[in-house]
Structures are given as structure tokens and as C-alpha cells.
Design a binder for these strands. Structure first.
Lengths: 183, 183
DNA sequence: GTTCACATGTAACAGGTTACATGATTGG
DNA sequence: CCAATCATGTAACCTGTTACATGTGAAC
């Protein structure tokens, strides 16, 4: 169910948008933490969706900027989206290179491990700040729920990481070990 | 970096295993929450890894059961794995149909939404129990860290979900709305 | 007797990503 | 002047999934 098609329908449910804007919603913004898609997937999906009558487009000429093609959900599109939502969801999937690195900390250069952790903490701080901001701006119930869910998750990760980083940093490989081995 | 190849090397780092066992590690067990792979990806990957000299295999005949091909990491394989770990990790990726459903709760049948939430709670309880068990069994620092991380995450999700479910259940579509619309 | 766990492998297919192609305007 | 943002789209490619093919023994 959760392919780029459904994703486009979902974003259009919240308002008309161009392919460019849909990709931005999937890349940044408060819902980016559980959604992702690239141009190469979105544009063909929108074309197909229009052929299937689930979305409609109107073109808009702009001065200076390129023309934009604004898509909107058709009644049939809304029904299709509803139908997708009312199916049983698949299990959530997390892919984390970060956790693989921490899992095998003894094979990782101490400096590298620390910098990876620092970066992760900074990234989490950014996300938390972004979601806290979104929480105060948006008053749609579903959005608030999802943003709150993300916040709870990120805060838990951040707290755990800060409190337990030393357990893996202690077993990380000293500088030279890895440098020699890799050479 | 985190493709099935690297995943196989990672699992073999913890001990020799067959393709069947590698897939089990990726599917169930304490690391399943950030790793995934199917037979169709693992077996070809192992064959390729052996051609590249990163793993070695020995065959074992068994009475009653099919023969098994036990793979182990070669020194070159260990170096390749180390090199992968010492690169900058890509951002974690979460795909969640569950969150898309909650985001658009007003389009979802109330009964369906509640049953999806109940199922999610049960799933989280199972995972939490599994990880709590793993925490007491395994004394490897990296494993403990990763299991603890997963626990912190799942507990935060569970608590948030239980405390906030009514905010979306309140706006879910009453029974008939969806049934009529979908018909 | 039928389903599950063990065990390996292939092939068709789906679903995406990355890079390319194009081009104007604005801000540093 | 160079980079970034806006804006759409294609094509080659990669990676992985699902389903198929095959077979035994144990448990229910």
C-alpha cells in the first residue's frame, strides 16, 4: 500500500501541490520522518495517477520562474486513498546504518565512533526543534498526533544515546588499530 | 553501505552461519528492528561474497535434514566490513504505514483505526518483551547498546500511543461513512 | 494427513534511486 | 560569477521482493 502513489494522494489530501512541493514535503517538514520519495519516483507517479483519474492538474505560468503543474485530488482519488488507509498496514520498517556501527563498536575507530555519535545527537536536536515548532503551528489532530509520536521517539533516542554512549565508546578500537588494518 | 552484502558480513562477524540462519537473524531476534533481508537477496549475495573472497563456505551433511552450507568471514571479509563501518553512515530511514493512517485518521473507519492501534500495542509489547529477554541473555557491549536503544524507542512509542490514541480515535470516521463511500 | 521447520537456490518482476537534460532568477 | 532555489521530466540502473522449484522429517 505505501508506495509513492499512495504517498502523493496523501500529500494532496492536505492541499493542492506540484511535484516539486510533494517531494519537499517528503524530504523536509514534520512528516519526513516516516515518508520518503525522490523526483524520479514522484513525477512518473503523478502522470500515471492523472491517467487513472485519481488526480487532476492545471498549469500555471509564472514570471521568472518555470511553469508549474498543480495537482489536486479528484473524488475518485480521495476514495482510492481512503481505501488504502482502511487496509491493514504493513509493519514499520527501520533501516539504520548507525545502529550497525554501534553494534560492532569494537571494529570502529574511536574517533570515528565519537564523531558519528555527535553528529547523530546534533541531527536529533534539529529534528526535535523542528517538530516542537510544528507542534505549535499546526492544529490538525492527525498531524499533531504524528508530530508528537515523532517527538516522543526522538527524545527517547536522544536521552538513551547521551546516557549510554560511553558503554560503546569504551570498547571502540583505538586509533591505530583500524588505521593499520585498513591500510 | 547498508545493503545485503554488508549485512551478511555483519552477521557472520558474530559467528559462522548458513544463509537460512542469516535470514532468521534479520527477520526475528534482537537486531531485527533495524535490519531486513529475504532469501532471494541473501543467497545470491553469499555466492557473490564467496567469489570475491570475503567469505568462505564448508558443506555439512545432515541426517534427515537437507545439507547446509556454513559460511564464515575471511580476513579480507573482516577488513571489508571494518571499512564499511568506518564510513559516514547514511541517515536512518523509517517507513510507516501506521503513521500515515493516524495522520489521516478522519478518513479511517473508527473500528479499523482502533483495531490497528490495538494490534500495534500488542506488537510493541511483543518486541519489548523480546528485547528485555535479550538484554539479560547477551553480554556483548554493542548488542546491549543496540537492544537498549530499541527498548527505549519502543517504550516511548508505546507510552505515547496509549496516552494519545483518543485524540485521533475521536476524529475517526463513524462506521457508515467509510462503508458507504468505499462501496 | 497436513502443516511447520529445515535448507538452498533461481527468475520474473516491482519499485525505487541517481544522474542527466534544460533553463530562469535571486542572493551572496 | 557562482551557488542555490524553483521547476519538470526521462532513462539507465540497482536492489531487493515474491513466487516458484525441490525435498525430508517431526509434530499435531
Amino acid at each position: 500500500m505505501m508506495n509513492v502513489r499512495t504517498l502523493c494522494l496523501g500529500i494532496l489530501f492536505f492541499g493542492d501541490a506540484t511535484g516539486y512541493e510533494i517531494r519537499k514535503s517528503a524530504q523536509e517538514g514534520p512528516f519526513a520522518h516516516f515518508i520518503q520519495a525522490s523526483y524520479g519516483a514522484i513525477y512518473p507517479a503523478l502522470i500515471k495517477l492523472e491517467q487513472d483519474g485519481l488526480v487532476a492538474s492545471r498549469e500555471e505560468r509564472q514570471m521568472g520562474k518555470p511553469d508549474r503543474k498543480i495537482y489536486s485530488l479528484t473524488p475518485a482519488g480521495l476514495e482510492a486513498f481512503k481505501a488504502a488507509l482502511n487496509e491493514a498496514p504493513q509493519d514499520d520498517v527501520l533501516k539504520s546504518e548507525f545502529l550497525l556501527i554501534t553494534l560492532c563498536a569494537e571494529l570502529v575507530d574511536g574517533n570515528h565512533l565519537s564523531s558519528v555519535i555527535e553528529e547523530k545527537l546534533r541531527w536529533l536536536d534539529d529534528k526535535i526543534a523542528e517538530l516542537e515548532h510544528a507542534q505549535h503551528c499546526c492544529h490538525h489532530a492527525g498531524s499533531q498526533f504524528v508530530v508528537g509520536y515523532g517527538l516522543a521517539m526522538y527524545r527517547a533516542k536522544r536521552a538513551y544515546l547521551e546516557q549510554n554512549r560511553q558503554t560503546i565508546e569504551a570498547i571502540a578500537a583505538p586509533d591505530e588499530t583500524v588505521r593499520v588494518a585498513a591500510g
